[in-house]
Amino acid sequence: NKEKKVFISLVGSRGLGCSISSGPIQKPGIFISHVKPGSLSAEVGLEIGDQIVEVNGVDFSNLDHKEAVNVLKSSRSLTISIVAAAGRE
């Protein structure tokens, strides 16, 4: 599966507009579980089932849900590497 990078700058009070969840035991990782229509996440093409592999240089493969949320909230400017639809297989 091809990795792609998206860049998101949080402007004003707009949030990311997506929710994440941890994958099942047999498929660990952090996946996008919800994308709000019209949100920044939707605008850059994030979709439900995409796996987040890295954010701002932080490897997401071994993070738990709480740590992942903290990384996503730690910066107003995010570089997110995803594997599209990895969670839909």
Rank of each mutant, 00 (worst) to 15 (best):
R88F: 12
P28M: 05
I48T: 12
F31M: 05
L16E: 03
S33C: 06
P28F: 04
A42V: 03
N62K: 13
I80H: 04
G45W: 00
S77F: 09
S9F: 09
S33F: 01
S13N: 15
I52M: 07
E3N: 14
E54D: 13
S19W: 06
L40R: 09
L46M: 11
S81P: 03
A86V: 11
A84N: 11
A42R: 05
I20R: 00
S81G: 09
I48H: 09
R76Q: 15
F7H: 12
S81W: 07
S41K: 01
E43C: 06
R88A: 14
D50R: 01
L46W: 01
S9N: 10
T79V: 09
G45A: 01
R76F: 05
S77K: 14
V11G: 09
L78F: 07
I25V: 13
R76V: 09
I48V: 15
V6F: 13
G15Y: 07
S77H: 14
I25S: 13
I25M: 12
F60H: 04
K66I: 10
I52N: 00
I20G: 00
I32H: 02
N62P: 05
R88Y: 11
F7K: 13
Q51F: 02
K66Y: 07
S19F: 06
S39G: 08
S77C: 11
Q51M: 06
G49S: 01
R14F: 03
S77M: 09
E3I: 15
R88L: 12
I20C: 02
K66C: 09
S81F: 04
K27I: 05
N62T: 11
L78C: 04
E54P: 00
F31C: 00
T79S: 14
G29S: 02
H34L: 05
I32T: 01
K4W: 04
I20F: 07
A86W: 07
S19L: 08
E3R: 07
S77R: 12
K36W: 07
G17A: 00
R76Y: 07
S74P: 15
N62M: 13
D59V: 06
N62Y: 11
I82N: 04
A85F: 08
P24M: 09
L46V: 04
I25N: 14
A85K: 12
I48L: 09
V83S: 09
S13I: 05
V6Q: 05
I20L: 11
G23I: 05
N62H: 12
G17L: 02
S74F: 01
D59N: 13
N1S: 15
K27M: 09
D59F: 04
I32G: 01
K4M: 05
P28V: 03
S21G: 07
D59R: 14
L40T: 09
E89W: 09
L46Y: 00
F60M: 11
N56I: 10
K4D: 06
V55L: 04
T79H: 14
S33Q: 09
F60R: 02
K4R: 09
L40C: 13
K4N: 06
S19H: 09
I25Q: 11
V69D: 10
I52C: 03
I52W: 02
S81T: 15
K66V: 11
V6S: 11
V83Y: 09
I20T: 05
S19C: 11
K27S: 10
G87Y: 12
G17P: 01
V11A: 10
V71F: 05
I80S: 03
L40I: 14
F7C: 15
S19R: 12
S13Q: 14
L40W: 08
A86C: 15
K36M: 12
V44K: 11
